[in-house]
Nucleic acid binder design. Sequence first.
DNA 1: GTAGGGTTAG
Length: 613
Amino acid sequence: MAPLLLTLTNQTLTLLERCSDMEELKQIHAQMFKTGLVQDTIPGSRLLKFCASSDSGNLAYAQLVFDRIWRPNTFMWNTIIRGYSNSKDPEQALLLYHQMLCNSVPHNGYTFPFLLKACASLPSLEETQQIHARIVKTGFISEVYAANSLFHVYAKSGSLTSARRLFDRVPQRDIVSWNSMIDAYTKCGEMEIAHELFKQMPTKNVISWTSMISGSVGAGLFKEALSIFHKMQLSCVKPDNVALASMLSACAHLGALDQGRWVQAYINKNGIHIDLILGCVLVDMFAKCGDVEEALKVFRNMEKRGVAAWTAMIAGFAIHGRGREALDLFVEMQKAGIKPNLVTFTGILTACSYAGLVDEGKYFFENMERVYNLTPSVEHYGCMVDLLGRAGQLKKAEELVETMPMNPNVAIWGALLNACRIHGNFELGTRVGKILIELDADHGGRYIHLASIFAAAGQWDQAVKVRKLMKDRGVSKLPGCSAISSNGILHDFFAGDRSHPQTQEIYLMWDRIAERLRQEGYKPALGNLLLDLEDEEKETAIHRHSEKLAIAFGFISTEPGTAIRITKNLRVCEDCHTASKLISKVYSRDIVVRDRTRFHLFKDGNCSCGDYW
DNA sequence: GTAGGGTTAG
C-alpha cells in the first residue's frame, strides 16, 4: 500500500475509534466516500460495527451502509446480524442469515451466537432446531460459544430436555455452559436439579451464585435465597449489582428490613453504582419492609428512574394506605415524561382502593384505555371490585364482575368476598364463598371463610357442613406465620408454636400483656373462627395466634420505645387487630404489621388502615 | 460472540 493511503487509512481508523455519536460518524462516512476508503475492508467494517452495535449507533443507517458494500465478508454479515439480534426486530437477523446462505458466504464461530441470540428473543424453536442442525453439520458444535448459545435458547424456549441432552454430549463445557443449565432449571422451578448441578460444577462465579439466588426467589424460597447469598460471601465471591438486586428482592418478600439495610450499607461502602434496576429494587425493598421514608429517599436520590421505579414507589405508598401521595407521584411521573404501564395502574388503583379514594379510582380506571391506550386486564378489574366492594358499593362491584370482558378468577371472587366480610353481606357472601370453594377447592382458607360467614349468621349446621366438606376433601389450611427480626435473625412463629428456645418467656410475656389489656377493657373477639371448640379453648387458641406470639417476642427482644415490626403471611384477624391497637396505646409502642396485602401501623390505639382491610 | 437482576390486584 502506498504510504499516503496507509496514513489516510490509519487516520480514519483512529477517527472511527474515537467516534462518539452518529453526527460525527456521518462526517467520517462522507470523508470515506470521497477517499474511496468506504470499500476498504477494515475501515468499512469498523464503520458498520459502530452503526450496528454501539450504544449510540443507528441500525437503519447500518443497513444502508451494508447494502452499499460490494460482497460483504463474513465479519460484516455477522455485524449486521448482531445488530438485528439486539434490536426490536430480531426476525430480520434470521432473514439476513438466509441471505448470507444464499450468497454462499462462509460462517465462522461468531455467526451462531448472534443468530441464536435472535432466536432466544423470538423465541422460535423451529429456527433454533434448523440452526442446531447446521452447527452440527459445519462442526461448530465443538466450539463452546456456539454450544452455549444453543443451551441458552433451548432453555429459554422451555426445551429443557434438548438443552440437557446437548449439555451431556458436547465435547467442551465451560462455566457459562453450567450457568446456563442451572439458570434453565431454576426458571422451570426444578430447584433440586439446579442444586445438584451447582454442587457438581468445577468452579462457580458470581453469576452461578446469582442464578441460584434468583431461582430461589422465583420458587418462593426466600430464606433459602438469603442463605445462598451468605454462602456466596463465605466463598469470597464478591456480589455485584445483579446479585445484590436478587438478594434485595428476597428481603422485600420476607420483609427482612435488617438484611435489606445491610445490603444498602454494602452498596454504599463498596461504591457500587445504583443503576436503574438496583435503585428500583431498593425502593421496593424499603417500601415492602415498612420504611417508606427511606424508600422515598432512595427514589429521590436515583440519577435515572425507569417506569418500574416510579411504579414501585407508587405501589409502596399504596400498601401503606398513603393514597394521596401515590397519586401525587403519578402526576409527577407524567410530568417527568415517563409513560405509565399496566403495572403502574394496578399500583394506582390499589392506592385508591386502600385509601378509599373511590371517585379517583373510577376516574383512572376509565381513563386507562381512552387516555393511556392501555387495556385493563383482570388485575385491574380485581382492583376495581376491591375498591367498590370496600366502599360498600357491593351491588356495583357485583355488576362489574358480571359485565367484565373476561372470566372472573379467584382473585376477583376473593375481593368480592372480602367486601362481604367487611360489610356483613350474608347473602352475597355465601353465594361467592360457594363459588370459591369450587374454583379454589384446594385452598383451605376458602372453606374457613365460608364457614365463618355461616357461623356469623348463626347458621351453625351450614358452617359445620362446610368444615366437614373441607375435611372430606382432605384440604388443609395454610398455617398462619408471623416473622419478626431480632439481631439480624428472622424468627418465625406459627399459631400455638412452642418451638422457639424462649417459648416459656414468650408465653409468660403474652399472659402479662393480655392481663393488662383485660384491665383496659379488652375482650377477645372469639367470633366464629373455631366452631368446634368450647369458648375457653377458643380464647386460648386466639391468644396463641402467631402474631401475638411475635408481639410478645418483640417485647422481650427489642428496646422499649422502638417499633415492633412483624411480617405475616395471612391477613390480620379481627382480634389481633383490636389487640394490637390497644397494645400500641397502653404500652406506647408502635407496631408495624405487614400482612398478606398491606401494612398496618398501630399507633396510639389506632391503625393506619382505618380499620378498613 | 455465550450465562445471572426490577414494578402487578384478592
